[in-house]
Amino acid sequence: MNRRDIIDGLKGGAVIALSTTPFAVLFGAVAVDNGLSIVEAGLMSATIYAGASQLVGIELFGQQVAPWLIVLSIFAVNFRHVLYSAAIARHIRGYSFWQKAVAFFFLIDPQFAESIRRAETGKPVSFAWYMAFGLIIYVSWLLFSVLGAWFGSMLGDPKVWAIDVLLPIYFLGLVIGFRRKPGFYPVVAASMVGSMAGFHLVGSPWHVSIGAICGVAVAALLPLPQKPDQSAEVTH
């Protein structure tokens, strides 16, 4: 069973690892282009491990922006993870303290989405599955970031090879995968309007947090299902 979980995790993780490869290469290339060394680009991927925020950070590194503002911007882009770790809590009750501490480091968008999907299909979100899934993505992310930095500008203009459309397509696909959830359409509409308003009125990267808050607020205000669930116990 444990073995089964590991194989499941590696299989699922490999698909994500493959689809994040272009972004890892892109990140590495852009990082070097903005004055970071290969080691520094690798350090970012190894310690921050959050693609969109790494690209935001890189963009600010290239400008004359105060360091605390760079950290704050990365924090803002990654703020969504607060919601992830809250939402995933009930599925990882069986983990020990240190297993949780390690697992949360790997809590990226697809890790969260797949963990929830797995839990909803009734399979256990075991530590073995979680780490197999996470580590194959992590290793590939790190490896291809460094390779991308190595090749630097050899990629040329990412638009020529349509590399720039892969990330939004990937996120859109994840969203569409949730279309059968209750309240899906009002939530997505609110998040869309909120993020675009945030984008134009406040600016990037705040549109991420603003849009997310709008979508989540609408979900909280939507009528509850007719047969209300008993409030779920949350164990410590």
Binding site: D109, I169, F171, K181, G183, G215, A217, A220, P228, E233
Partner: peptide, 27 residues
């Protein structure tokens, strides 16, 4: 200690709400 149903409903919406903000500007 317990999770209010509205909070649970809000948490269930997190993935779609967040991920939408990552493709909407591109669109």
């Amino acid at each position: 200690r317990t999770m209010p149903p509205r909070l649970e409903q809000a948490l269930n919406a997190v993935p779609a709400a967040v991920l939408t903000t990552l493709w909407a500007p591109a669109f």
